[in-house]
Design a protein around this nucleic acid. Structure first.
Lengths: 202, 202
DNA sequence: CCGTGAATGTACTGTGCAGTACAAACGTGT
DNA sequence: ACACGTTTGTACTGCACAGTACATTCACGG
């Protein structure tokens, strides 16, 4: 961001651009999104894009930071209250259900990983740190589950958290390739089933 | 492929182009690879690219088919002989160890998923079918493990196979974001640990 | 009501890359 | 040795998009 906006109008424009870019990057990828598309969706001209961001690389960096914040904010209410095995299953359910049969299946964070070239080290670091925080919050929830003795015996909350996050990202990938959201549900259920103490109905 | 090569020389050229394109697509992605780069690496000119392939989309389709075949061929010896829990752990170990600390961490198949636009339906289908075969071979191996009673009680071989593949793809993604191959190893070990019967040393 | 800095829109430029045309070299059968 | 189809290299064209320059409009303080 070259010039900080000083007026309310300017800040609104920056927010609109960020929103539009988040949307487009998540839906069709970074390289497939042109600055004209961002301009059209946010109803701004080229002028602002180069006034508030230093060109496309700058916009990408800003969007990644924003997208990380968004995802974590969206996850927080669910992750923060995980305390039982049922809550974990609920989290899986929500994660799987967010993708309809029609819209493209991509994680707004995961889909960005492969589009960063070797030279955007900082952006990649922000992304990696976002995944780290995500995993940490999940691990905190799983530790509470462990307190209730609803974790499978011998399962390490940190390892399970990393595994759940990975299986989610991988599940999104496979489901995206097959255009079939149920593949995501299947793998999430599979790992959840292995990691949580089976609670027979007695 | 517009024109099939009829001579040995022509076939050799096609093979060289396919090799070079596989390499470049896997390393830097489809959109980041120019036809000139493919030409340079395979020591061919533009002429051949448009003689044997119908332009870039055609090349992409051919490369995907080739890449699927390659990965499955490479996996076959290992997957075909899985019979015990130790074999599964060995598979995880090999999968994790293939990435050095320096080279970019990307699955040659997984990294392609996000680069296909909505319009390359056939290419995506080939990719999805490749994942399907991969999972099927893994599942066959896990069924043999089940025969030995070395699968965790109640674990379904098919579900575990899907989960292992997903956690591999997701682990590659996370490890790639963090530039840290150990993240892949961690999540593979975590899922393998949950899915395989714990064999205490007694 | 005017002046100044912020914000906005547009028209222009350069470049990198996909796609095309075509001429030269190769090689195989007769 | 010749002829013809195959293979190869290169030079050209057009376009899409990032980046730039600049003229115009807005809004707030004096």
């Amino acid at each position: 961001m070259r010039t900080e906006p000083t007026t309310a109008k300017g800040r609104a424009t920056v927010a609109r651009v960020l929103d539009a870019a988040c949307e487009l990057f998540a839906r069709q990828g970074i390289r497939a999104t042109t600055l004209d598309q961002v301009g059209a969706l946010s109803r701004t001209g080229r002028g602002q894009l180069y006034l508030y961001f230093t060109g496309k690389p700058g916009l990408v960096a800003a969007v990644i930071a924003q997208q990380v914040q968004r995802v974590l904010d969206a996850q927080q209410p669910l992750l923060g209250t995980i305390a039982t095995a049922a809550d974990v299953r609920e989290w899986c359910d929500v994660a799987a259900r967010q993708y309809g049969v029609d819209d493209p299946i991509r994680c707004p964070l995961g889909s960005l990983v492969h589009e960063l070239t070797g030279q955007d080290g900082p952006a990649r670091a922000v992304l990696a740190e976002g995944f780290g925080r995500w995993r940490a919050e999940l691990a905190a929830g799983l530790r509470r589950v462990e307190q209730c003795d609803e974790l499978a015996p011998g399962a390490d909350p940190d390892a399970v958290a990393a595994a759940l996050l990975a299986v989610y990202e991988g599940g999104v990938l496979l489901a995206g390739a097959a255009h079939d959201p149920t593949q995501l549900r299947m793998v999430l259920d599979a790992v959840a089933g292995l990691a949580l103490a089976s609670v027979p109905a007695y």
